[in-house]
Each structure stands twice: as C-alpha cells, then as structure tokens.
Amino acid sequence: MARRPTIKDIARRAGVSESAVSFALNGRPGVSEETRARIRRVAEELGWQPNSAARALSGERAGVVGLVLARPAHTLGVESFFLQLVSGVQEVLGAARTALLFQVVEDLDAECALYRRWWAERRVDGVLVVDPRTRDPRPGLLAGLGLPAVTVGEARPAPALSSVRADDARAMAQILDHLHGLGHRRIVHVAGLPELAHTARRIASLRAEAQRRGLRPQEVRSVPTDYSDTEGAAATRRVLNEPAPPTALVYDNDVMAVAGAGVAAELGIPVPGRLSLVAWDDSALCRVTHPRLTALVRDTAAFGRLAAEELLAVLGGGQPRVRLAEQPRLEPRESTAPPPPAY
C-alpha cells in the first residue's frame, strides 16, 4: 500500500521546516504569505489531508457526521427511502467537505452504545438521528453527552436538539380525503414498526380522520408490520381473507404496496375493480407496477438535504429549532377507483 504523505514529506519537498508546514496548514502566523502558498501547493500536489483523529484530539472538528440505523437488516435492501435520504445528506456534506460515517446496528441499545463510543473517541462532530421512537432514550442521551444532533422525523424533540420533520397527519388526511371521496368505507392501513414515532402519528391520524367522517373503528384500522415485502404480503393476505374485507389498503412504503398488489393478483381480486391500493412513498416501483400505484409524492432527497443543512447550522453555533419539510402531495393513479356497489 502507498504510504500517506506526512508533514515531513511536505517540509522536505517545500524546503522548509516541519514547524513552518504546521503553521501554514493550520492558518497560524509565523510564515510569509509566499511560503504559506508554496507549502499549500506542495501539500495539494502530494495529496495530503489532515488526520481527523489528530484534529479531534487537538480540539478541532473531526470533519465527520454520524448516522446510525437500528432496523432489521433484511428491510434495508428493498426500501428506497433511506437511499434517497442518504443521497440528499451526502450532497450537502460533500459540498461542505464533511464525511458521513454510516453504521447499521441490531437495536436501540447498540445504537446508544455506539453514540457513547463515538463521543469518547471524538469520532464525529455530530449525528443525524433517524426513526424516532415513541419512547426514545436517544435525545436525552445525546443532550447529556453534549453531542450535537438533529432528529429526522420527530415532531417534539428534546429542547437541546434540532429536528426536521414531515407533516404525517396532513399526509394521511389527503389519503383519507381521496379514498372517502371515492366511496370507500372499509380501509386498512398496513403500517410499519409500531414503536416508531411517525408510525404512531400515522395511526393516530387515520383514527382521527375516520372518526371525523363517522367511520367505524372496526372498518378503518391499522395493522403493524416490519416494513418488509414479506410482512406486507402476509398482512394483505390476512385482511383480504376476512369475512368483510377492506375495499382499500394504504401501505406505509412502496415495497409493501407492490407486494400487496401481487397478493391481490394471486387471490384473483382485481385492482382497482374490487380493491384500491395507496403507497405512502412514491418510487419507480409504484410507477412501473400495473396498474400504476396511487402514491404520496415527496422529494426525499430534499428531506435529507434539509437535515444535513440543519446539522451543519448547529455545528456552526445555530440554536435548536424545528424545521418542516415540504408537504407531500397525493398523486392519484390507476390503482384507486370507487368500490363496486356490492362492497
């Protein structure tokens, strides 16, 4: 392996002392502007970069932001949401010459332990916290450590933390407006992990919107899953085999919606002739499935950019605040229609 260039290499090539190189690269006085420019030019030619660990130990920023995901590993490869979110985060961090340290862990305890280790090792300057829980130990832990953080998706963050979020309640209201307006009265929400805060908000919003329209709780309800196509398909099969099956299904992600469409086809239930389908997150899957799936359209990459911008603002000394992402809009497609009169 090629050896990384050092301050000694720069000093030798530039014909100056190592202390002069240190002064020049750290922006300290002690060298002329001409010498400083020569040293920086040589450092660039050699491909030298500051050691992030050494910078952190000296009290400087590490130039790294952390993102931990505590979810079942088998649900990550098929869901496009996090790929789009990370692409938006990386776009902002790349422009700021800040690295993203990403790690998947088995559960919330492991995530908290990782935060403690990163803080002790000064590995990261701050973290983006995803998948807020209804009872979440992470905001209190991060505030206690003094590790800057931005929660992604939390409506009521800890006072010391910033948050970016989408309005899940209004999004669910759009879906219920559409389905109720078509004449659907038996609607099942195939939800994600029930301990996640945004899942709880969606479930509560569905219940409130149904009650506002005078719909019965036993006919409009939520069924939790783990977001995977396997559980999405199993939940679909289960509710469609009930004596009074739903005429509309709302899925918390695109993968479950496509899996549900497959189950309907397997059972001989035409979409949208007897069953309407809605996906919470739009994707290429929703647009290439036949019939094309009605879905909530939002710029997930922009959501990631907003989260990264807020964290950089916090690292720059900004005060904690809550920022609202652009409201998603429902795009009706061929998978939703009025239910047949017999249903």
Results as ranks from 00 to 15, higher is better:
T151P: 02
P139A: 07
L76C: 11
E111Q: 15
V92T: 10
G94M: 08
V78T: 12
E91K: 14
A37Q: 14
A158Q: 14
F81D: 12
W48L: 01
I39R: 04
L142H: 05
L85P: 12
L57N: 07
L93V: 02
A37T: 09
G59L: 07
E91Y: 02
F82A: 13
R40M: 02
S163E: 11
R38T: 05
L57D: 15
G66M: 13
V124P: 03
R138T: 02
E44F: 09
W118C: 01
P148K: 05
A149M: 05
V78I: 11
A96F: 05
Q49H: 14
G59F: 12
S163Q: 06
A95K: 11
L100W: 10
L161C: 03
E60Q: 14
V42W: 00
S80N: 12
A70D: 14
L100P: 05
L83Y: 14
V129T: 01
Y115A: 04
G59R: 01
L161F: 12
G144T: 02
V64L: 03
L142S: 00
L147H: 04
L147W: 03
R41D: 14
R71L: 10
G94P: 10
V89R: 05
Y115M: 09
V127R: 02
L147Y: 00
V65W: 04
I39M: 12
L108N: 09
D131G: 03
E121D: 14
V68C: 09
E60I: 01
R135W: 10
Q90V: 08
R138M: 14
W118V: 00
L76T: 06
A37M: 10
F81H: 06
G77D: 05
P157E: 07
L67M: 14
V105P: 01
D107F: 07
Q84I: 02
E154P: 07
A54F: 06
V127G: 00
R61N: 05
E91P: 05
A43Y: 00
L108W: 13
G66K: 00
A62Y: 05
A155G: 13
E79L: 09
N51M: 01
F82Q: 10
